[in-house]
């Protein structure tokens, strides 16, 4: 019997071993090409997600066959987003490749060509969709756990605090649209669990405050501000909070469940068509916006991070001042 060493000493065997090694590398490459093609062309949401998932986890490292590093894993998420929106005939999100870095960026029509978005990885194993200058993800995504959650604190910072300085409320509303559609598509086509946070429009939705107690002085301030407007602030029948009556039968309530011992305060928005979110009210009503922002410490809405570990950290919307650009 010959030992391995002897066997590899024979040239034909050596060549054949090398060829075999190349073969494996090429197989990886072949698979890579198939996945990229699928990512680019498939019209099936499940196939698309599968391709993204495989690409994200694909290890291109091979000792014998080197592939030029072309895309970051976070690029695949951007492609998932734009392809899924394409499938739903939405073209408000555009993805372009930077010619030098080969990184992908997304732009949203209503914000123009200069505002760039991308995905970033966070320490919890999710990716977050954020303005490249911010790193304050508007939503976090985890395709392994099939979940998407909007971040209330970052939405308010990005759109309400900063965005309104440069854009109209209608432009910002349009910016939200493709993001919500993406979330909806993930839910409808791919069974993702999604949490729209303050973008949710159901009348039943409660936006819990992160502070355990609320001083009624804060509501007094809103009451006083209404004197200069056409809107009125009413007491709820069970003395469990206040109701701001706005246009077209839209009401914003800040209340607690009188039967609930914990007296958890929450916002809720009631409108006849279940189409208006708390975010919309912040965006459209200066009265509410000014009041919320000047009492943000007390009124901050909970903003749960996307964490799947057992040891959940309770990290609520912080009250840090947002720096203006």
């Amino acid at each position: 019997m010959m030992n391995n060493n002897q066997m590899l000493n024979r040239p034909s065997e050596q060549v054949s071993a090398l060829a075999h090694s190349f073969e494996h590398g090429l197989e990886i490459g072949q698979h890579y090409v198939e996945l990229l093609t699928k990512l680019a062309k498939t019209e099936d949401a499940h196939e698309l997600l599968e391709a993204v998932n495989d690409l994200v986890n694909l290890d291109l490292e091979d000792a014998f066959v080197k592939f030029p590093q072309h895309y970051q894993t976070t690029d695949y998420y951007l492609l998932l987003m734009v392809r899924l929106l394409e499938m739903h005939s939405n073209s408000e999100l555009n993805v372009t490749e930077d010619p030098t870095s080969h990184l992908f960026y997304a732009t949203i029509s209503s914000l123009g060509e200069k505002v760039l978005f991308h995905f970033v990885k966070d320490q919890d194993g999710n990716v977050g969709f954020t303005d490249v200058n911010d790193n304050e993800p508007l939503f976090s995504l985890n395709i392994e756990h099939q979940m998407l959650r909007f971040n209330n604190k970052n939405l308010i910072n990005y759109f309400i605090v900063k965005g309104l300085k440069k854009y109209s409320d209608l432009d910002l509303r349009s910016t939200i649209k493709p993001l919500l559609l993406f979330a909806q598509a993930l839910h409808d086509d791919l069974d993702f669990v999604i949490d729209r946070g303050i973008l949710g429009t159901s009348n039943q939705q409660h936006y819990d405050l992160s502070q355990p107690e609320l001083s009624l002085t804060v509501i007094d301030r809103l009451f006083v501000s209404t004197a200069e407007t056409d809107y009125m602030l009413f007491n709820l029948p069970k003395n469990n909070g206040a109701e701001l009556r706005l246009d077209r039968d839209v009401n914003l309530d800040l209340s607690f469940d009188p039967d609930d011992y914990s007296q958890q305060w929450f916002f809720s928005v009631n409108d006849p068509d279940n189409q208006i979110s708390f975010f919309d009210l912040l965006l459209h009503y200066q009265l509410i916006r000014d009041w919320y922002l000047s009492n943000r410490e007390e009124l901050a809405v909970k903003s749960d991070p996307l964490i799947f570990a057992d040891d959940q950290i309770d990290e609520n919307e912080s009250t840090d001042e947002v720096e203006d650009d």
Binding site: T217, F223, V224, T226, A227, M232
Partner: peptide, 16 residues
């Protein structure tokens, strides 16, 4: 001032 403003607000609601 807040309590005076509150009274103003109440009166303006009543007036309205």
């Amino acid at each position: 001032v807040l309590s005076l403003s509150k009274e103003n607000t109440i009166l303006s609601y009543e007036q309205k």
